[in-house]
């Protein structure tokens, strides 16, 4: 069965996607924020966040997904993530040298512990998630423009 990829999939897939895509995004954010307590971390959580947007695009077509997060915003957010990571690294100079953990260590097993590690995880997840989604979006747009010819 061939379907038009721009229009998305059938109504069953659309309904299930509407129910699950928020949970997937939430799970990605959970993995990112608990990276220093449980397995996971910035990279894995960022890829899960990207997968939630990919899921949205596969089910509803690329127009709906681009309206949520367009390619320009995606590439800008990726640069923001990279700069944030670098700024945290440079901020270590306040404590002595590059990448010194300048914030409070906190008590183990608490969410706000381990100093800059939480911020690092957020920066990496922003970079990875949005960057991978931008790559996927660029590939899909390329495919679409080829078919029109």
């Amino acid at each position: 069965m061939r379907h038009n990829p721009d229009a998305g999939m059938s109504i069953i897939v659309k309904t299930v996607t509407r129910l699950t895509v928020g949970l997937i995004l939430l799970f990605g954010i959970y993995i990112v924020l608990h990276g220093h307590i449980s397995p996971g971390g910035g990279f894995a959580g960022g890829v899960i966040i990207a997968l939630s947007f990919v899921h949205l695009m596969l089910a509803f077509g690329k127009d709906v997904a681009s309206r949520k997060l367009s390619k320009n915003i995606a590439s800008n957010l990726e640069a923001v993530g990279a700069l944030m990571f670098l700024l945290i690294a440079v901020a270590g100079f306040f404590g002595g040298s590059f990448f010194v953990n300048i914030l409070e260590k906190g008590t183990p097993f608490k969410l706000f512990s381990a100093g800059t590690m939480l911020l690092n995880n957020v920066a990496i997840s922003l970079k990875v998630g949005v960057g991978l989604f931008a790559i996927f979006l660029a590939l899909v747009i390329l495919e679409g423009s080829k078919k029109k010819k």
Binding site: H36, N101, A114
Partner: peptide, 28 residues
């Protein structure tokens, strides 16, 4: 030393954070 329970995170984001910066640069 780092306050993180997950030792993998402690290594990649604290002891060896410079490596992670290089990895992020490659992805960028």
């Amino acid at each position: 030393e780092t306050g993180a329970v997950n030792l993998v995170s402690a290594v990649i984001l604290d002891f060896r954070a410079y490596d992670t910066l290089g990895e992020a640069t490659v992805l960028f």
